[in-house]
């Protein structure tokens, strides 16, 4: 009895209806939190004593970087579930994650460059975080490219899932080797994020935005998953029944 919820989630008609019902519950809080967080970050938070108003870029940079990683982990977990339990819906979730994650990785890179110019004096610095972010973008592109290379959905699902799992195992290895590499070649980065010393007036907007972006991801993911389900289940009867109802 305890596992029935899991089996129900694996049923496309149930998940389709559930996703449609849940979307607004994520979308509206996400909108409120993001708008409120941005306002607080731009207006209410005090300027940093060293970086002045320029530090306000972290309110968009850090949540984007958080999204890029969190979405990748979500994608990897969904892919693993799909591969291990042969659950088609999980593959639909993994496939829906990739474009969202890739887009926020691009935002993290662009805002990182915009933050770097006034702080370091260059648009691009081979900082370990930015370098890892760039590698993450290539991992997303590889996943999307591999999926796009197959016409057969099942082959795309399973090969892509394997790649996502291999990528997830490798992300920490890559990240730590990049940190090791960086520590050899240059002084520690001037960029300091998430310092515990951050005063609450600065920290709270950041936390609000992190939560808002996470809920935003959930809402967008639910919409994309519905599209994926419709496409994958196009040969089934329940779609016609749902649409007529």
């Amino acid at each position: 009895m305890r596992w029935t919820w899991f089996h129900r989630l694996a049923s496309p008609p149930y998940l389709y209806a559930l996703a449609a019902r849940l979307t607004p519950w994520f979308a509206w809080p996400a909108a409120l939190l993001i708008l409120g967080g941005l306002y607080a970050g731009l207006v209410l938070a005090p300027p940093d004593y060293q970086q002045g108003e320029g530090f306000r870029i972290i309110y968009v940079h850090v949540p984007s970087a958080w999204m890029s990683l969190m979405v990748y982990v979500t994608m990897g977990v969904a892919a693993a579930v799909g591969l291990i339990w042969r659950m088609k819906i999980a593959h639909a979730v993994a496939a829906s994650c990739a474009p969202i994650g890739a887009s926020f990785t691009v935002v993290a890179l662009v805002t990182g460059a915009l933050y770097g110019k006034p702080m370091w004096g260059t648009w691009w610095e081979w900082d370990p975080r930015l370098t890892s972010e760039l590698i993450l973008l290539f991992l997303y592109l590889g996943f999307m490219g591999l999926r796009a290379g197959f016409d057969d959905t099942q082959r795309a699902d399973r090969s892509g899932a394997l790649l996502a799992i291999v990528g997830m195992v490798n992300v920490p290895i890559i990240h730590y080797s990049v940190i090791w590499w960086n520590s050899l070649h240059q002084a520690p980065s001037v960029m300091r994020f998430g310092k515990p010393a951050m005063p609450p007036a600065m920290l709270v907007p950041l936390l609000v935005l992190l939560l808002g972006f996470t809920l935003f991801f959930a809402a967008v993911l639910l919409v994309r998953v519905r599209a994926e389900i419709l496409q994958r289940e196009r040969a089934t009867r329940w779609i016609g029944e749902t649409l007529r109802a």
Binding site: L42, G52, G54, V60, L114, K117, V223, R224, A227
Partner: peptide, 29 residues
């Protein structure tokens, strides 16, 4: 505080991608 050329583009890019994600998802649905 003199950082307008960096702060505003960063916020614009982020907002643009947030909106684009909504548009892309709704379009595919």
């Amino acid at each position: 505080g003199g950082y307008a050329a960096f702060v505003w583009p960063a916020y614009l890019v982020t907002l643009a991608v947030l909106v684009l994600n909504i548009i892309w998802a709704r379009k595919s649905l």
